[in-house]
Design a protein around this nucleic acid. Structure first.
Length: 916
DNA sequence: AAGAATGAAAC
DNA sequence: GTTTCATTCTT
């Protein structure tokens, strides 16, 4: 979860760098931002190291493979995004520049400009991006062996699900049964949820993971919640079908005593409860909860069991202390409040649980009631409230009433409304549709899994938020009154948070995890929480099965047996906190911290396992090359983190790079940053030329007329000015390659090469002669291949281009600026040239072409299509004029000079055309 | 949500 | 040959 938040944060930060502040879409809590930043930046390195360590630790088992697979599977929801191609990289790198230069320009326009730049870009420079793209792709593929770009098959999926967006990310590993390569992935995807369970069930982890998972489920399954989302899960006795998490939760709840009531609700709480109890009980704390739970189920005496569980003590050792402290604190509190030590603890835990699980809370009403009852407890709320109102509510509920009630947190899921905002829902749906349908559950609704996953993201976000809030609360605010929180909750609701941030979180988790390990204690309560949460999520998502099966012993998960040291530190931290805070809150915070730490540890372990897997996997299969540069893990994580939604996607990249959580990400970022960034000025110069280049393509000439009609007509509808404005964005695009030779890359390159000289000229454009020369060159090339016939064999992209070009031409003309004129001219000239010089050698062509072109240009007006002819002629004239103007002045200013004159004539032309 | 660009991949 | 989607982000 954190990851997502981070991502957001980063995005925000990143924005600062180049981009403008992002849109509201990603709404992140200010708190989150701060915290996130701290985390991400501070501990990234550590994380990596930790990861490595983990890898080493877990390392060797088959886990890796599983993990890798699992990772792949993970993607289902989140699905790794297909790697960016060279152009996209270029766009990503330069869009900000374009925007700076053309603040008013909308993104489309910016994209066009970028395209122009790209067209103009020196082959060498281009090659850099191409190489980067290739490298990136290779790394990506290593990380995602089975990855499919666009499973067409899936697309059909469209039909199945009415996915709003046709585009979802079907590809990849669609969990769908149909997948081939992905099959493993698929399985994984399906398993994913299960895996998570697996993660959870391990005693300790189980509890925590359960919680986390539960949260996810709740979010994800809201719909399902009522229904049986996962019959499968129902494995354990009572728990219902619901996800394993639920089951666990239930179990725990059972153990917890409360009797009561709804198993489901309890489930979620139970885990928390247990944790709380453990803390409170001081001894109880074991991770064995799962075991205990089982036993408890039969029995009811948790504490006893806990004591029995001493075996696990490691954790206990630490915790007990804290628990004691907490108890004490609680006691004090109790005095004030109603002496609800245990309750408070519980509540606290519950709150957390709620936060995690509850995010989804469904029944605000209930919660509210509870809150009312337990105003005192409200104190808790406030904190949570920050993150999300819904969450807050949940927390409250548990706080009192019963813990029994808590189950809400989990159950809550039903109320998707709170959690799911429309957007989320959409995303989820999309994801669910895309990725998985298949798997899951028969439930008419989307499969629980899918949703869960998607939801999980959201949840994760929420969690992170909450965690952050908590952390603050725990640390600083501990002392402060919680009530404020309530307000906040009401007002602020987590909705914002809920909204989208979570998506990417997953990725970040690892980092967080690692960080936690390293610095859990050190950092304030909040971080731990945050971390823990993230970790918990991470674990479930990432490691799920593999972890369980293997190394992670339940004990480890639950309590960090393996990492006693860490635990201790945490304790110390708690103590410190307590000391610092000194009071209830401090206590609570401490408890929370402990809990978090435990969770985090467990999570960490799981994470480690994952990491190990990743490393191993990377080590195994992957080519050495990539490994060096790109880490598979990172990719995997990223994938995981990234959920289907586009937004996520967007953030992802940034996150990846920014977070650098993943090595891959880091490397990617590095590489990406290392990519050359050209000053807009250069491009601007080029830009002008570019059009010319396009003109060069001249081959367009015939086509433009043809194709142009269609677009034209459409445009006709629009008002002329409208059209103009529209196309203004587009500067002129170089169409050349398309028409002429069919866009083959070779052709393009050839074109570029030819152009290249022009560029130089271009800079010189000012000189009249040169521009003409350039034009000539460009056209010459295209001409050779396709002389007069030019008709458009455009394919796919070519068609697109053709359309664009057509439009572009119009635009150009509309603009009246130099480019337009040139464009039109080009067309003709090309034809003419072609005609005159159908077979010119490239080299020869250039020169000749230039000459021809010139002649052609002058001529151009005459020939050509009848209807078009007029247009062309005008264009030619305009071009000539432009040329002249150019000579006089340079184009930058010239636009006015050249442009106006040209425009005048052209505009009319366009209009006429449109009319036609 | 659509759309602008290019490119790569899967049909 | 065609379609999808990768990024970005405004409208």
């Amino acid at each position: 979860m954190k990851g997502s938040n981070r991502n957001k944060d980063h995005s925000a930060e990143g924005e600062g760098a180049g981009k403008r502040p992002k849109r509201k879409c990603l709404q992140w809590h200010p708190l989150l931002a701060k915290k996130l930043l701290d985390f991400s930046e501070e501990e990234e390195e550590e994380d990596e190291e930790e990861d490595i360590d983990k890898v080493q630790l877990l390392g060797a088992d088959g886990l890796e493979q599983d993990v890798a697979e699992t990772e792949d599977d993970e993607s289902p929801e989140q699905r790794a995004r297909r790697p960016m191609n060279a152009f996209l990289l270029f766009c990503k790198r330069h869009r900000s520049l374009v925007r700076q230069e053309h603040p008013r320009l909308d993104n489309r326009g910016a994209t066009k400009i970028l395209a122009d730049w790209w067209a103009v870009l020196d082959p060498k420079e281009k090659q850099k991006y191409t190489d980067m793209a290739k490298e990136y792709k290779d790394a990506f593929m290593k990380a995602n062996p089975g990855y499919k770009w666009c499973p067409t098959t899936n697309k059909p999926v469209k039909s199945p699900t009415p996915t709003v967006n046709p585009r979802k990310k079907l590809w990849a590993f669609p969990s769908d049964s149909s997948r081939d390569l992905p099959s493993p992935k698929k399985t994984k995807t399906e398993e994913m949820p299960q895996l998570n369970f697996g993660m959870a069930d391990p005693t300790q982890m189980g509890g925590l993971s359960m919680l986390l998972l539960a949260g996810e489920h709740a979010l994800g399954t809201p719909e399902i919640s009522s229904g049986t989302c996962r019959p499968d899960v129902s494995e354990s006795s009572e728990l219902r079908q619901k996800s394993p998490l639920f089951q666990f939760a239930e179990i725990s709840s059972n153990t917890s005593q409360l009797g009561g009531a709804e198993p489901v609700k309890r489930c979620g709480k139970s885990a928390l409860f247990q944790l709380a109890e453990m803390c409170l009980a001081s001894e109880g704390v074991k991770m064995e909860e799962s075991k205990l739970i089982k036993a408890k189920e039969a029995d009811g005496g948790r504490i006893k069991e806990l004591e029995k569980g001493k075996e696990e003590r490691e954790i206990k050792m630490e915790k007990p202390d804290e628990a004691r402290l907490q108890k004490e604190a609680d006691v004090e509190k109790s005095a004030k409040e109603n002496g609800r030590d245990s309750k408070e603890l519980r509540n606290f835990e519950e709150l957390r649980m709620d936060d995690i699980m509850g995010i989804k809370m469904e029944d605000p009403k209930d919660i509210k009631k509870e809150e009312l009852e337990e105003d005192q407890k409200c104190s808790h709320f406030p904190d949570f409230s920050y993150s999300a109102s819904s969450k807050i509510i949940i927390s409250d509920v548990p706080s009192r009433k019963d813990h029994l009630c808590h189950p809400h947190g989990i159950m809550i899921i039903e109320d998707p409304t709170t959690l799911n905002k429309p957007e989320k829902l959409k995303k989820k749906k999309k994801k669910s549709k895309m990725d998985r349908h298949g798997n899951d559950k028969s439930t008419p609704k989307k499969t629980c899994k899918k949703r869960q996953s998607s939801e999980s993201d959201i949840e994760s976000v929420i969690y992170t938020i909450e965690a952050v809030a908590k952390g603050d609360w725990g640390i600083e605010k501990l002392g402060e009154t919680p009530r404020k929180k309530v307000r906040t909750s009401s007002s602020g609701k987590g909705s914002i948070l809920d909204a989208k941030p979570p998506k990417k979180k997953v990725k970040s988790r690892e980092k967080k995890m690692s960080k936690e390990k390293s610095s859990d204690t050190t950092k304030e309560s909040r971080p731990p929480d945050f971390l823990s949460i993230s970790a918990s999520k991470n674990i479930p998502g990432e490691v799920p099965e593999g972890i369980k099966a293997e190394p992670l012993t339940p004990t480890e998960d639950a309590l960090p047996p393996s990492l006693p040291g860490q635990a201790k530190p945490e304790d110390s931290d708690c103590h410190r906190k307590i000391e610092t805070c000194g009071f209830r809150k401090s206590e609570r915070s401490c408890k929370g911290a402990l809990y978090k730490t435990l969770v985090s540890e467990g999570m960490l372990t799981s994470l480690r396992a994952n990491v190990d897997r990743g490393k191993r996997s990377s080590g195994k299969g992957n080519s050495s090359d990539q490994e060096g540069c790109w880490n598979e893990e990172s990719w995997t994580f990223n994938q995981i983190g990234t959920s289907g939604s586009k937004k996520f996607k967007k953030t992802k990249p940034k996150e990846d790079s920014l977070l650098g959580s993943t090595k891959l990400d880091e490397e990617f970022e590095k590489k990406f940053n290392s990519l050359p960034q050209y000053s807009p000025v250069t491009f601007d110069r080029k830009c002008v030329p570019v059009p010319r280049k396009k003109k060069k393509t001249g081959s367009m000439s015939s086509e433009p007329t043809k194709t142009s009609k269609g677009p034209f007509q459409s445009q006709k509808k629009n008002l002329f000015h409208k059209i103009v404005s529209k196309y203004k964005h587009k500067k002129e695009k170089p169409n050349v390659p398309e028409k002429g030779s069919g866009d083959k890359w070779s052709n393009k390159q050839f074109f570029l090469d030819a152009i290249h000289p022009t560029e130089a000229i271009f800079s010189e454009d000012k000189n009249t002669t040169e521009p003409a020369y350039k034009v000539k060159n460009a056209p010459s090339i295209p001409n050779t291949p396709e002389p007069t016939t030019m008709q458009e064999p455009l394919v796919g992209s070519q068609k697109r281009k053709a359309r664009k070009t057509k439009i572009t031409h119009l635009v150009r003309t509309a603009d009246g600026r130099v480019s337009p004129a040139g464009g039109t001219l080009d067309d003709k000239p090309k034809e003419q040239l072609q005609r005159s010089l159908p077979k010119v050698t490239e080299a020869g062509c250039n020169d000749e072409c230039s000459h021809n072109r010139e002649a052609a240009e002058t001529r151009s007006s005459t020939p050509e299509m009848p209807a078009v002819s007029a247009f062309f002629s005008l264009a030619a004239l305009a071009e000539v004029a432009a040329m002249e103007n150019v000579h006089r002045g340079q184009r930058s200013t010239p636009l006015t000079h050249d442009g106006q004159p040209k425009e005048m004539p052209q505009a009319p032309v366009l209009i006429s055309c449109a009319d036609q």
